[in-house]
């Protein structure tokens, strides 16, 4: 565990907490893509199956359980308790265009052709693109609430910090994982446009609004 990894994990935790609090406090999931949230739930489920097979540390297990539970709660809010506030009309990204290629790619490029490894690889590929329905929704409506942009910033920062973690681990331990690194780079690149808008607008107190 190095400082980048810890910062990345904390950023990830902050992101999921911001999202849950936003929905809970406003009693609304307006502006949030239920499709992205569904994809994240699939990501956590397929990656954290190793909770049952591999014990790493208490920290590791707690974090995995936290992400699974937060994701489950988010889905319950979006598709259950507050479903009336979910903005279906703007959440029109076709997730099969992400699920199918990620599934196929994980069958072809993986570390080992076993069920657990393929599911892990699938989750890494899927996570890298899971935010696309959310970004698509923001681009369709042309704006995002400030709280939603804080959520997106924290969520995007997490994988960017992991990139620093991987550089650190390569230097310090000669450990690297090309699948995770490649997907992490893709994931971070997808957020770049958003990061730019966040820094130039939201941090200056303006609403995140896309140019018409």
């Amino acid at each position: 565990m190095n400082i980048f990894r810890l910062a990345g994990d904390l950023s990830h935790v902050v992101a999921v907490i911001i999202l849950l609090l936003k929905i809970w406090k406003t009693r609304s999931c307006a502006g949030i893509s239920g499709k992205s949230q569904l994809l994240f739930a699939i990501v956590y489920l397929t990656r954290y199956l190793d909770l049952f097979t591999t014990y790493v540390s208490l920290y590791n297990s707690i974090m995995k359980i936290l992400f699974l539970s937060a994701s489950g709660a988010t889905l319950y809010f979006m598709y259950g308790k507050f479903r009336g506030t979910y903005d279906h009309n703007h959440d029109t990204f076709r997730i099969e265009f992400l699920l199918i290629p990620c599934g196929l790619l994980s069958l072809v490029i993986n570390h080992e052709f076993t069920v657990m490894e393929i599911l892990w690889t699938f989750s890494i590929y899927l996570e890298s693109v899971a935010i696309l329905p959310q970004l698509f929704m923001v681009s369709k409506t042309g704006e995002a609430e400030s709280i939603t942009s804080h959520y997106l910033f924290a969520l995007g920062s997490y994988r960017a910090l992991y990139l620093l973690n991987w550089i650190h681990r390569y230097i310090a331990e000669s450990h690297y994982d090309l699948i995770a690194i490649f997907a992490g780079i893709v994931q971070t690149i997808l957020y770049c446009d958003f990061f730019y808008l966040y820094i130039t607008k939201v941090l200056k107190g303006k609403k995140l609004q896309l140019p018409a």
């Binding site: 990894r5 994990d9 990830h12 190793d50 591999t54 790493v56 540390s57 590791n60 974090m63 995995k64 992400f67 570390h111 080992e112 490894e117 892990w120 690889t121 992991y162 973690n165 000669s174 450990h175 690297y176 994982d177 090309l178 699948i179 995770a180």
Partner: peptide
């Protein structure tokens, strides 16, 4: 060494 899935990373 074969690079592999590190179960520690989240």
């Amino acid at each position: 060494e074969e690079p592999s899935n590190d179960h520690d990373e989240l």
